[in-house]
Design a protein around this nucleic acid. Sequence first.
DNA 1: CGGATTTTTGACTGAGTGTTCAACTTGCCC
DNA 2: GGGCAAGTTGAACACTCAGTCAAAAATCCG
Lengths: 215, 215
Amino acid sequence: MADSRPKTRIQARNRAAILEAALEVFSQAGFRGATLDQIATTAGLSKPNVLYYYPSKEAIHVALLSDLMDDWLEPLRALDPEGDAVDEILAYVLRKLDMAREMPRESRLFANEIVQGAPRIMPMITGELKTLVDDKARIIRGWAETGMIAPVDPHHLIFSIWATTQHYADFDTQVRGILAPEGDEHFDGAAAFLDHLYRAALTPLGSAVERAADA
Amino acid sequence: MADSRPKTRIQARNRAAILEAALEVFSQAGFRGATLDQIATTAGLSKPNVLYYYPSKEAIHVALLSDLMDDWLEPLRALDPEGDAVDEILAYVLRKLDMAREMPRESRLFANEIVQGAPRIMPMITGELKTLVDDKARIIRGWAETGMIAPVDPHHLIFSIWATTQHYADFDTQVRGILAPEGDEHFDGAAAFLDHLYRAALTPLGSAVERAADA
DNA sequence: CGGATTTTTGACTGAGTGTTCAACTTGCCC
DNA sequence: GGGCAAGTTGAACACTCAGTCAAAAATCCG
C-alpha cells in the first residue's frame, strides 16, 4: 500500500487496466499459472511497462486481493442486527448468490488462493475476515438464543452459505457440464432452492407449525 | 489407459509411489504449480525415472484423476432408491463430510482442476459424472413427487451437498483460520449443523408438524 | 555364471518466464 | 519552443522446469 493513490490520469488508467487484466488472468489460471505476458497483453501494455506500475507479479496479486476484499465482504457486513433474523440471513444468501452470478472472477480468484493454502493472504483471513465473521456469528447466536431462528451453530451456518453460493461461481464449469444451461437461468433455480433450504433450516419450530397449518 | 496394469513388482511399487506423491503435490499446488522435481523427490525417485513410468507430467495428472474418480463418486452411487429417502440423503451428506475429513487431498485435487475450468477432465464431467448425477436426481425427484421428502430441485440439492461438505476440505485453510481448532473437532460441529440443515429442508411438511408436536 | 531385459540416472537441451536496464518517446509546464 | 519528468520498450539476463538420451546399474532367467 505504498503507492496506492495515482498521481496522473495515465497512472489511474493503466493501474486500473492492469488490475482488470490481472483479475481476468489470475482468476482463470491461478497465481502460478498466470504469466506477466498474459496480463500485459490483456491490459494492452508491454511487460516491462506493467512492471513500471507494480514492482512484481506478486505485488499485482496482493494489490488485487486487497482491493477486492472489502467489496467481497460487504454483504456480510450488511447483515443488520436490528433486522428480522430470517429475512436478514436470507437476504445475505441471495446477495451472495447474486455476486456469484455477477462476479464469478472475483470468487474464483479467492477460491484459487485459498484452495492452495492462502499463501499470500493468510493475514487477511485470520485478521479482518475472522473479526468480521466472529462479530456476525455473535449476532446470529443471539438470534438463536432468543428463538428468532432455530438453534444452529452460526459459524457453520456462515460457512455453508459461502459454500452453497460461491459454488456456482467456483465450480461453474462443473455445474454447466451437468445442467447444460443456455445462459444463467440455472441461477434462478439455485435461488429458489437456497431460499427453501435456509428458510426451512432457520425457521423456529413454532413458526414451522404455523407454516404447515397454512398449507 | 494404455499401460495400466503393472508387469513387475517394481513397476507396481513405483507407479503407486508416483501417484501418491503426485496426489500430495498436485493437490497442494495445482497442476501448473506442481513440478516434476517435487513429485520425484516426494516419491523417492529421480525425475527421469518418474518419466520412465509416465510419459509426461500431464499423463500423471490424468492417471491420478481417472484412478480417483470412481472412489470419489462411490458415495453418490451408494444412494439407494429402495432406502428411506431422508435417511439415504443424510447418510450421503455425512459420508461426504467424512471424505472431506479423511481425504482432503483428493477433494482439493478436483477442486483445483475444476476451478480452473477442468481443462483435463471435461469429458469425465459431461460423461460419467453427468450420467450418474442425472440418474440419482431422477430418484430424488421421485421421492419428492411421492411426498417422501419436501419438494426440492434434486440437482441443486446435490450441488449444495457437494458444496457444504467439500468446503471443509477445499477451504480448510480458511475454516481453520476462523475457527482455530486444535485438530479436527470442528468436523463434529459441521456434522451436527449439516444434519439439522438437510433434515429441516427435506422433511416433508406433514412430518415437520409431528416433529414440532413432539417438542 | 552370463546374456538379455528392465530400471535408474547424470548431464543436457530448449522453451518459458520474472525481472532488469539503458535508451527512447511522450506529456507537461514555464 | 525547451527542458524536465513521466512513461515506454527491445534486448538481455538469470533461473526454472519439462522432457531427452546415452550409458550405467540392477534384475531376471537359463
